[in-house]
Simulated assay, not measured.
Amino acid sequence: MPNAAPPLLPLAYDGSHIDGSLFTAITGLARDTRWLNAPMEWWTNAGLGVFAVLVAVGWWRARRRDAKAMTLALAAPVSIVAAFAVAEVVKKYVGELRPCRSVPHAFIVEACPAPGDYAFPSGHVTTAAAAVAALWLLDRRLAAIAAVFAVLEAFTRVYVGGHYPHDVVGAAILAAPVALLTSLALRRTATPLVARWRAGGALAPVLTADPAGTRAAD
């Protein structure tokens, strides 16, 4: 059974007129595939762990590359946090009601969040898209894998009724440039410091597979 929809709140933005019909079409699919509801609801949250793993793999592989690559690896989580912070500011500014409040007739799998937890942009997809963008600068193969999971993450957010399609698209459009610019800024400013850390000291084994710091590229 879907979760009961709380009533519409006053003085908040109703985004259902943008793509509410597409939203209900996807949640209608959820209604018709109830056997998938539990796995999709589990994955929509647990799936974020995939991006943490991919970022960790990027760091591990960067240990055998130069200081710029390692700086990008270290910048990846910072970039994701930066994108998420920007998204939270936008979310409060836009104040879009969750679909469970503005489309009470829809089939909603996910429990309806608190009234102050707004819909636009999706925090889950912000995290996923930021990870893709940060990894794109670091390792294109990992970024391609992350992109596949990001699309899946975006779909599950609509499938479980947590967001409208425009919430997930907007999150990707917002997160990608923030993550890219943050990673690029850190690569430019922090690479000399990372190179010094790689050259020796307690952090060298974490930052390079060559603790002696003899890589010419550094």
Results as ranks from 00 to 15, higher is better:
2 P>L: 06
2 P>Q: 00
2 P>V: 02
5 A>Q: 05
7 P>K: 15
7 P>F: 10
10 P>C: 04
10 P>N: 13
11 L>H: 15
15 G>I: 04
18 I>Y: 08
20 G>Y: 05
20 G>W: 02
20 G>A: 01
21 S>G: 07
22 L>W: 11
23 F>M: 01
25 A>Q: 15
25 A>D: 10
27 T>E: 02
27 T>L: 06
28 G>T: 10
28 G>R: 10
28 G>D: 12
28 G>Q: 13
29 L>W: 15
29 L>K: 14
29 L>E: 11
30 A>F: 03
32 D>N: 14
32 D>A: 13
33 T>A: 14
38 A>N: 13
41 E>N: 15
42 W>A: 14
43 W>N: 12
44 T>Q: 09
45 N>T: 11
47 G>S: 13
47 G>V: 03
50 V>E: 08
51 F>W: 13
51 F>H: 14
55 V>K: 02
57 V>C: 08
58 G>P: 06
58 G>E: 07
60 W>E: 13
60 W>Y: 14
61 R>S: 03
61 R>P: 00
65 R>M: 13
66 D>N: 15
67 A>V: 09
69 A>K: 02
70 M>P: 05
71 T>K: 08
72 L>F: 13
72 L>T: 09
74 L>H: 12
79 S>H: 01
81 V>Y: 05
82 A>N: 11
82 A>M: 12
82 A>C: 08
82 A>W: 00
84 F>C: 02
84 F>N: 12
85 A>G: 10
86 V>M: 02
87 A>P: 06
93 Y>P: 00
95 G>Y: 06
103 V>K: 01
104 P>K: 09
104 P>T: 07
105 H>C: 07
105 H>N: 12
110 E>K: 15
110 E>N: 14
110 E>D: 12
111 A>N: 11
111 A>P: 02
112 C>H: 04
116 G>P: 02
116 G>K: 05
117 D>F: 06
117 D>C: 04
117 D>M: 01
117 D>L: 04
120 F>I: 07
121 P>L: 09
122 S>M: 09
124 H>T: 07
124 H>K: 03
131 A>V: 00
132 V>F: 02
134 A>Q: 01
134 A>V: 03
135 L>Q: 03
135 L>N: 05
136 W>R: 08
136 W>M: 04
137 L>K: 08
138 L>I: 10
146 A>L: 03
148 V>A: 14
148 V>G: 10
149 F>E: 08
149 F>Q: 04
150 A>K: 06
151 V>R: 04
153 E>K: 05
156 T>Y: 09
157 R>N: 05
157 R>M: 05
159 Y>S: 10
160 V>I: 11
161 G>Q: 02
162 G>I: 07
163 H>M: 07
163 H>T: 01
164 Y>Q: 08
165 P>Y: 06
166 H>L: 04
168 V>H: 03
169 V>T: 02
169 V>A: 04
170 G>I: 01
171 A>D: 00
173 I>H: 03
173 I>E: 08
174 L>K: 06
175 A>R: 04
183 S>M: 00
185 A>E: 09
188 R>S: 15
188 R>E: 14
189 T>N: 15
191 T>R: 14
192 P>E: 03
193 L>C: 11
197 W>G: 01
199 A>P: 00
202 A>S: 05
204 A>C: 00
205 P>N: 09
207 L>N: 00
211 P>I: 05
213 G>P: 00
214 T>L: 13
214 T>I: 09
215 R>K: 12
215 R>G: 07
216 A>G: 07
216 A>K: 10
